[in-house]
């Protein structure tokens, strides 16, 4: 008999096992909501851990404030850089050319012999092809381009390559995920694998999936990068956070993305 905590707004379905489950006059109920594409083989997107109100904000393109960044990214696509070239000079049809890009990053990069995140790839293009300077992961320009590129793949399943040359980096990311750290001595897995659905103070823990990034967080009141979220998590367990774009976080991103394999890209997701 499972005693699952009910959350407001979820459809409750009575267990159809008869009177053995009746306690006094109260029927024990479990949550049996069909999350559609937001659940794959038991892995659930952070979307399923939000309240109905927050989900409604994500679902409506004109209520979702992250769409402001998507639109800005779309405008930036054809804006010429210092050398006169724009993103569109090479990728003239972004709706087609960028489809499937977000679900596949981070990727193994032959040039550096390690993993490269999508932000780092965007920066490489900005610097080498357009004569621009590199952007920080959470600059307005980077978040606009990232939400735009991500939004083009909205609904596509996350699918990173973890074999071949990516394997050792995947293993490093995995080790990071299960390594206890900080004054609270907690690994990523302690919250997001062992306890999703339970409360941490007043918040519901999710599985820590990253299929919706860059995500518009109600707390941040703007979109933010995966690495910003990693930094926040690390600070919460009172560990020293790594830098956005560090090898540690790029490898972790690869592992966490694989952890949510098959979940749909939701960029820009809305989370609490």
């Amino acid at each position: 008999m499972k005693n699952v905590k009910s959350k407001r707004g979820w459809k409750l379905t009575s267990i159809a096992l008869g009177s053995t489950l009746m306690v006094g006059a109260m029927a024990i109920e479990v949550i049996a909501k069909d999350w559609g594409s937001h659940e794959v083989d038991g892995r659930r997107s952070g979307y399923t851990y939000m309240t109905d109100e927050t989900r409604a904000v994500q679902d409506d393109n004109f209520e979702n404030p992250g769409m402001l960044w998507v639109e800005n990214g779309e405008a930036l696509w054809s804006k010429a850089g210092a050398n006169g070239k724009s993103c569109a000079s090479c990728h003239a049809d972004p709706e087609k050319d960028m489809k499937g890009v977000m679900p596949a990053y981070p990727k193994f990069d032959k040039r550096t012999g390690k993993m490269i995140s999508l932000e780092q790839m965007v920066n490489r293009e900005l610097v080498e092809k357009m004569g621009e300077k590199a952007e920080k992961f959470d600059s307005k320009k980077m978040l606009s381009l990232m939400t735009y590129i991500g939004n083009i793949s909205k609904g596509m399943p996350v699918n990173v390559k973890i074999d071949g040359p990516a394997k050792p980096f995947f293993e490093k990311g995995k080790a990071f995920y299960y390594q206890r750290r900080g004054q609270l001595d907690l690994a990523c897995s302690n919250c997001h694998e062992d306890n999703p659905g339970k409360q941490i103070r007043a918040n519901t823990l999710s599985e820590g999936q990253i299929n919706g990034f860059p995500t518009y967080r109600l707390k941040w009141q703007k979109p933010g990068s995966v690495h910003r979220r990693f930094r926040g998590c690390n600070k919460n367990v009172r560990a020293k956070p790594y830098k956005a774009g560090s090898d540690e976080y790029v490898n972790l991103e690869l592992f966490v993305k694989w952890h949510g394999r098959g979940l749909p890209v939701e960029t820009p997701a809305v989370r609490n």
Partner: peptide, 8 residues
């Protein structure tokens, strides 16, 4: 109004 457990 909930006070978050995950400041992030």
């Amino acid at each position: 109004v909930t006070i978050g457990g995950c400041g992030g």
